[in-house]
Design a binder for these strands. Structure first.
Lengths: 189, 189
DNA sequence: CGAAAATTTGACATGACTCAACTGGAGTGG
DNA sequence: CCACTCCAGTTGAGTCATGTCAAATTTTCG
């Protein structure tokens, strides 16, 4: 087994037979990103489901005025791509950028088709994984609506203390839905 | 076939064999809600996946101060429940209320287990359905971060012109993340 | 070291909130 | 069927959190 972190990740959701896992593992593609490099850029069609073997990815969208809006920040041991673009082969609206050197494992369409047909448990696995991501995002909407920027910042820091050193502050500000100046003032207390 | 709207709904995502559909249909439970009645209340554990056969549901959360925050508004032909509570048998944080008389079709655990084992295509169907809901919610986060309350209101009205007559304005305001007074002022132009 | 990028600070503007009062319509009971 | 009550919606005045614009400072990195 080459990637115990991925095997563990599956097993946390549902028990996975080792041979079913290995059947996937040997078909995974690898990709490395250097700091500041992009995994996904707006307008392209996404061909992979990316798992972060080690590193850090930030997902943002650009609005009509060219301002960036960070939607998601994900660390080692999670997935971050664009399911919609991958499954419908349509151009993505997202930009996903690494802010540390990052190692990825990729599933392409052929492999996805193969493993979900051969081992139907994978379809269930992806259902649960996406369901968890959906719940997180509903929670994100609730947080934006119910809490001040300051409180959201505090909670983020509590959840991910290292974040302040991991990515530029203007990206954290954007994730919180505020300007870098405002984050600076919040931090100044 | 008793509920062509549900059959259509499945078929829009992936082709579904009629016998597989009927196998589900005969196991569905029915539930009616009168205007203002609740489908889901905070603290309870959700036992069903609810499909809106006809009507309108609003999903909101209460914060520490007791203020309500509307997260989702869903009409006929869609699902709205709490997947997390249903699948993990944990108490929900959500309140889901009908604002018109509403007819629901319910899937319970037993039925979910039965149909997803008997017809594995359903697991794929739910994966895709949840994936679409997830994408909608990501889009919601992007909208909150990138657009003014006024613009979000305009876009909501454009997407669902009838909404202003369907539910109380204070619920629409909450969905937009603003106070009823602010919505009133926005509308006054 | 030096240029470019990121962060901070200051001054001022503004969108949305809060509190309070008022208006209008829906539903209820006599 | 009217009178009353209650709730939703509106309006006004003042406040506050965050934005905007501009400049200064600090950090990063070739």
């Amino acid at each position: 087994m080459q990637y115990p972190i991925l095997y563990e990740h599956f097993n946390e959701l549902i028990p996975l037979q080792k041979d079913a896992y290995l059947d996937l593992e040997e078909r995974l593609l690898k990709k490395s990103l250097k700091k500041k490099e992009y995994l996904i850029e707006e307008g392209k069609t996404i061909k992979y489901l990316p798992f972060i073997k080690d590193g850090l990815l930030v997902n943002y969208r650009l609005d009509a005025k060219g301002n960036t809006h960070v939607i998601q920040i994900r660390y080692t041991g999670t997935w971050l791509g664009d399911l919609s673009s991958f499954f419908s082969s349509s151009p993505t609206h997202f930009n996903i950028q690494a802010f540390q050197n990052t190692e990825l494992l990729l599933i392409n369409h052929e492999t996805f088709e193969y493993i979900s047909k051969k081992h139907p448990i994978y379809e269930k696995y992806f259902r649960i994984g996406i369901q968890n991501a959906y719940n997180q995002t509903l929670n994100q909407v609730y947080n934006i609506h119910s809490k001040s920027a300051e409180k959201r910042y505090e909670e983020l820091l509590k959840k991910i203390p290292s974040i302040i050193d991991d990515i530029p502050h203007y990206m954290i500000a954007s994730y919180l839905g505020i300007q870098p100046q405002s984050l600076s003032r919040i931090r100044n207390q």
